[in-house]
Design a protein around this nucleic acid. Structure first.
Lengths: 119, 119
DNA sequence: ACAAAAATGTTAGAAAATCTTACGTACTAT
DNA sequence: ATAGTACGTAAGATTTTCTAACATTTTTGT
């Protein structure tokens, strides 16, 4: 996994990196904006990605946005991305099918083309 | 700074990531193989780079190498790299000088070439 | 304007994680 | 044999984080 996604940073350090209070960071977890992992002992561990997300939250909050608005926004985003992904996937599949049948069409025409001898 | 170089990981997590004991990690610091930062409170913080270095140490130790051998090895490496850097730097500088004087040579010759008129 | 909800501070006590220091041990090299 | 290397382990202190609760401030909806 990438360094960006590995959950290794304790909450105090996250607070320093983002400028948020520890209280705020825990609260944003309660509102499902971040999902840290836990050690056996139960202490939270965040990733750099989480840090970036939290920094982004800090901005949106300054702009007067509410936590559930932020979450909703992200959910829409994810959905859009998922659709785009799906679309891309289908197109690629279609492309492969096309390539496949093209290959056969070419092969067949060549085989049945009297101008082309056996090789 | 890159995620790789930011010192944010506590020693327990480093131990998990590397499979080394906390004792070993502290010992390798004593032998100058890693240099974590500290929080105000005094707890160590490591980077992913440190984690990689420690993993590498673990291998060398398994091969029966001693800490000071490892350090010496790295110092030599650093030196070689520094020399290579220096060489590259000089070559680039020379390249720029060449380009510079080439430019003037071409310009001058054009200016003094009777076949080329004013524009 | 007022009540409810949201966002955050603060405090208290417990638990987890880390720190330093020191002593013990096994192995290696001289 | 002695000394150095590379750890393990233990003790006690300190730092960090945890949950839960209550308080305060800000925002929102009616």
């Amino acid at each position: 996994m990438s360094y960006r996604k590995k959950k290794v940073i304790p909450i105090g350090t996250v607070a320093e990196l983002t400028g948020l209070s520890v209280r705020q960071i825990r609260y944003y977890e309660e509102r499902k904006l971040v999902t840290p992992e836990r050690t056996k002992g139960g202490t939270r561990k965040y990733s750099f990605e989480d840090v970036d997300i939290l920094a982004e939250i800090a901005n949106k909050m300054e702009d007067g946005m509410q936590t559930y608005e932020i979450r909703k926004m992200w959910e829409k985003e994810k959905e859009r991305e998922a659709l785009a992904q799906e679309k891309a996937r289908k197109e690629m599949l279609q492309g492969q099918l096309n390539a496949h049948f093209n290959f056969h069409r070419l092969t067949d025409s060549r085989l049945s083309d009297p101008r082309l001898g056996d090789r």
